[in-house]
Amino acid sequence: MTRQIVSVIVPRQDYQRDKMAAVVPVMERSLCGSLETIETSHRTRASALMTSLNVARIRCVGDPEAVLLESWESWLLAMQVHSAVFAAASTDQAFVTCKIRQEERQLDSTGPQFYLNPGTWVDAFYLAVICRETEHLDMLARVPMSLLRDCGGVADDYAYAWVETLQSFWLRRDDLRTHLVRAVDLSTPEHARVLDGEEMSKLQYPPIMMIYRFLRKDPAGFNEALADAVRWHKEYWTADEDRMQNIHGAVAIAPLAIACLAKANGIPVEVETDYLPQALLDFGWRGEFDA
């Protein structure tokens, strides 16, 4: 008997679309300026990381399903920038050649830098999953943990355990279960030191449970975890007026990435929401660009 699929619908909060759209050209100019010197400047690499991802997010305010070419180009660019800085940091050569906006760039190697923290690595991993870029994922999965620990920043212990979980998952290592259990244990609010308990429980913990359900090949459990993740994402980003207009809330990047993994592996996604842009979830621009 075929199971009837019943979608869970989670509406996204309203954004001031005209105001957001007016910001895009300003952000694009800033991003273009950063890309001009990304090959040699650490400062502009940090700026390019932040701005490229925010441009991708803000385009999905006016294009919630990410069906426009400009939206896909923005997500692809954010992925390229995030992958490039880690490729440059983990090479033993003087430089690496990376494609950014369809142009080959030679980025000077760096080693650990302040912007190469676990949070940036996780964003890079999610973006590569969303863009289905296996070569970038292979590279990211081999970034040494020492590089992230030596970046000079401070992160909660769960952040390192989650990076190790994702690396083990992608490389199919035998220690995956060990790292996953540790990530679950360390993602509880009482272990939060840098993040507050609310962010830990509503934004960081849910993707871990999604991976757990995915690994158990449990479609119903996975979609329940995905629905919870999106609801908690919305709860967090609508808790007050400032958060409601914060562009970080426009797309639930972590749940989106893991939903992309699930869909690529035959698990139906039964949650409908603008927090998960449909064209990104469906990989609607497959084959249009060489990343």
Results as ranks from 00 to 15, higher is better:
286 R>H: 13
92 D>V: 04
52 S>P: 05
135 E>A: 12
162 W>R: 02
26 V>S: 11
291 A>Q: 09
229 A>R: 00
284 G>S: 11
136 H>Q: 13
195 L>A: 10
45 R>T: 03
7 S>L: 09
9 I>N: 11
127 L>C: 01
275 Y>P: 02
102 Q>W: 13
103 E>L: 09
156 D>R: 03
39 E>M: 06
173 R>A: 06
284 G>F: 09
44 T>D: 11
67 V>Q: 14
96 V>N: 02
259 A>W: 00
44 T>P: 00
110 T>A: 10
67 V>T: 08
151 C>K: 04
151 C>I: 01
21 A>V: 11
202 K>A: 02
262 A>D: 04
206 P>T: 05
180 L>T: 01
73 E>V: 07
141 A>E: 05
64 P>V: 07
264 A>S: 15
142 R>E: 10
226 L>A: 07
253 I>A: 09
144 P>M: 07
159 A>G: 03
19 K>L: 15
22 A>R: 15
26 V>N: 12
177 R>Y: 09
192 A>G: 06
279 A>F: 14
216 R>Q: 13
86 F>A: 07
64 P>N: 11
215 L>W: 01
132 R>H: 14
179 H>D: 04
67 V>N: 09
281 L>S: 04
151 C>S: 15
171 L>R: 15
176 L>K: 00
32 C>G: 05
107 L>R: 12
93 Q>N: 08
235 E>R: 00
42 H>C: 10
240 D>A: 04
184 V>L: 14
92 D>E: 11
235 E>T: 00
114 F>P: 05
98 C>D: 06
200 M>N: 08
165 T>W: 02
85 V>E: 01
98 C>H: 06
274 D>Y: 08
199 E>D: 09
105 R>G: 06
211 I>V: 15
107 L>P: 09
190 E>K: 13
100 I>F: 04
285 W>P: 02
268 P>T: 10
2 T>C: 02
51 T>N: 14
58 I>K: 12
34 S>I: 01
212 Y>A: 08
147 L>R: 05
4 Q>V: 10
6 V>N: 09
84 A>Q: 04
180 L>A: 01
3 R>E: 10
119 G>I: 04
237 W>L: 01
95 F>K: 12
149 R>S: 07
142 R>V: 03
96 V>C: 03
24 V>P: 04
213 R>F: 00
196 D>Y: 12
123 D>M: 12
10 V>H: 05
89 A>I: 02
159 A>E: 15
43 R>L: 11
99 K>Q: 13
103 E>Y: 08
92 D>R: 12
2 T>E: 14
66 A>F: 08
241 E>M: 12
165 T>K: 00
257 A>N: 05
145 M>H: 05
227 A>E: 10
261 L>A: 05
147 L>M: 10
11 P>W: 09
